[in-house]
Write a protein that binds this DNA or RNA. Structure first.
Lengths: 240, 240
DNA sequence: CAAATCCTAAATGTCGGACAAATGAAAAAA
DNA sequence: TTTTTTCATTTGTCCGACATTTAGGATTTG
């Protein structure tokens, strides 16, 4: 693709291509830093910078010691999700993404999970949903705790679809929005509304009623956007 | 969160937190490598390895020269999508994700875009869709070219939703599946079927008929999975 | 003989210094 | 004023050294 000018970037790019295209597979050990330095005709420092680049993308891991070295990493869903979340967070905060756009994307993705979750949800997952609803009804909760429980609820919903790829995709969308959601103050009255909608979702899934779940998600999207609009309006008024 | 043992990882983590939490904002210049080395009480090499880690995540960019240094990068959708695609590709190839699971996730996400795309599609986007359909009908196309056009078609479909966050999410799902899709040989007969379904999608969008688009996407998902199953079966038979 | 201990070689992690190359800005020349 | 030159700053690269970790062999000990 591109021609990186820096040697360390070029070397990282080379090795990355080897991994992506399957010439190096999971568990393979790369040559030692000294050997790589000789192979590429650069110093060990430069090789190290290249390896750190790859490590930052979770493509390799390094072990010290006699049988140590750099190994092609098994990219787990957890690793990928962690990256996804930080990337999504920055993407939203840096690109002047409006709350509406982020919200729309998030609920569109969640609704995509509804039919699958309705068909496959287990009793365990239903219990998780109800447990989070119970927590959200507790009076002493801070806004942050309420938000955290909200995230847990929606992750449980998505996990109900039983598709790890969807869970991975959604994690970024939902958790990336957390900073934005945390700006909203959830009064008792608002919490009741949200908990009601959550209950409708849980009931819909219990009855395996896709349409009901989608409708509740639509309601939740509308209500969330209304809340955000009010927050923005209040903020405007305070400034003017 | 975690306690990185390596100094370069720890420093990278520190600076990353500063960026994510807003203490450093887009365009800000970090102290020079020497200054950072002094601040953190480490050598310049260690600082450099930390900075390379951040550069690998597109969090910073570096400039040489007098007014150079490391600057907090503006994370564009393009950068994020490129990362997303390589991550998704590796995720699918390393985690023994079945074709069915990947396919299901992809089409679930695409169907999520259908209502939005039906409401907002422009004439330009419709023209793009028809243009790709035209290309896919040409007889001389290789399988790779057919796949590439297929990707372009689906990206245009998703872009029709007019939500950059959705476009970003989908890019990973669709392009990450490319290596898997490329394993399928598209005979003339199969191509006709696919082009027919693509046409139904384009027609549905033209009429702003969400239900028709979703139905066509369902049909395409089923057909794609059938094709994959046949490929796998043929492969099994060849081995046995 | 078996088990525990020690030793050693190999590899990454860190350090410090050195020079090259790029680059913007100040100083000098036209 | 405009152009050229010089220069200080900063990243990119290289080298050599030592510390730290670790697996596995060698040695000692029961």
């Amino acid at each position: 693709m591109k021609k990186p000018v820096d040697l360390s970037a070029r070397i990282a790019s080379d090795i990355r291509a080897s991994i992506v295209e399957g010439r190096l597979i999971v568990g393979d050990r790369l040559p030692s830093e000294s050997e790589l330095a000789e192979q590429f005709g650069v110093s060990r420092s430069t090789v190290r910078e290249a390896l750190k680049r790859l490590a930052a993308q979770s493509l390799i891991r390094t072990q010290r010691g006699a049988a140590g070295g750099a190994f092609v990493n098994h990219l787990s869903f957890e690793d990928a999700m962690a990256q996804q979340v930080t990337t999504a967070t920055l993407l939203l905060s840096m690109n002047a993404i409006s709350f509406d756009v982020a919200c729309e994307a998030r609920f569109a993705l969640e609704r995509a999970c509804a039919p699958l979750a309705a068909a496959r949800r287990t009793e365990d997952q239903l219990a998780r949903l109800r447990s989070e609803i119970g927590r959200q009804s507790q009076p002493g909760l801070t806004d942050e705790e309420f938000c955290a429980s909200d995230v847990a609820f929606h992750r449980a919903l998505v996990d109900g679809a039983g598709n790890p790829v969807l869970s991975y995709q959604l994690a970024g969308a939902v958790e990336g929005m957390l900073p934005l959601m945390n700006m909203i103050t959830f009064t008792a009255r608002k919490r009741v509304q949200i908990v009601n909608l959550h209950s409708r979702i849980a009931e819909g899934l219990t009855r395996r009623d896709t349409v009901a779940v989608e409708a509740a998600l639509h309601g939740l999207e509308d209500y969330t956007r209304t809340l955000a609009r009010d927050v923005m309006a209040a903020r405007e008024a305070a400034r003017g």
